[in-house]
Computed example of a mutant assay.
Amino acid sequence: MGVLFGVILGVGGAALDTVFVLRTGRLSMGMLIVGAAWFLLNSGVVWGLLAFVAGRLSRRSGIAALAGVVSLIAAVGSYYGYGLTFGDRVWGLQPLLPVITRWTLAAVLLGATVGFLGALSRRAGKLAYVGIATPVILALGALYLGYRDYGLNGTVIGANLFVVAACLLACGIMIWRRERIHSIVE
Rank of each mutant, 00 (worst) to 15 (best):
R123Y: 04
A139G: 05
G81F: 03
G92D: 12
S78N: 08
A15F: 12
I173Y: 01
I100D: 03
P95T: 09
A65R: 04
G141D: 02
G111H: 06
E186C: 00
G141Q: 02
L97F: 07
R178I: 03
G131H: 07
G48V: 05
Y82T: 02
G111L: 09
R56I: 02
V163T: 03
S78L: 06
V21Y: 13
Q94R: 10
S58N: 03
I8A: 15
V114T: 14
G92P: 05
V99N: 11
E186S: 13
R89Y: 12
L168D: 08
V99Q: 14
R123V: 01
I175V: 15
G172V: 03
L96W: 02
Y144R: 14
G87W: 05
V76L: 01
L84W: 10
M1R: 07
D149K: 12
S78A: 15
V76M: 06
G158V: 00
W176Q: 12
M29C: 06
T24I: 15
G12V: 02
I173H: 01
V136R: 01
G83F: 02
I184G: 07
G13E: 08
C167I: 02
I63F: 06
R180G: 05
R180N: 10
W47Y: 11
F52Q: 02
N42A: 03
F162C: 04
V76A: 06
L120D: 08
L22E: 13
L140F: 10
V53L: 12
G131W: 08
R178F: 11
R180P: 10
L143I: 01
P135E: 05
R177V: 04
S121C: 04
I184M: 04
L97Q: 05
S183V: 00
L161T: 04
I175D: 13
E179V: 13
I184V: 12
A124D: 15
M1D: 09
T24L: 14
G141C: 00
I8Q: 01
S28Q: 05
L4E: 01
L4W: 09
L27A: 12
A64E: 08
L93I: 10
R60K: 14
F52A: 00
R178G: 11
T113Y: 07
P135Y: 12
R26V: 13
L161N: 01
G30S: 14
R177Q: 12
R102G: 08
G55Y: 08
V99E: 11
C167G: 08
L120N: 01
R56H: 09
H182N: 13
A106W: 08
M31H: 11
S43R: 02
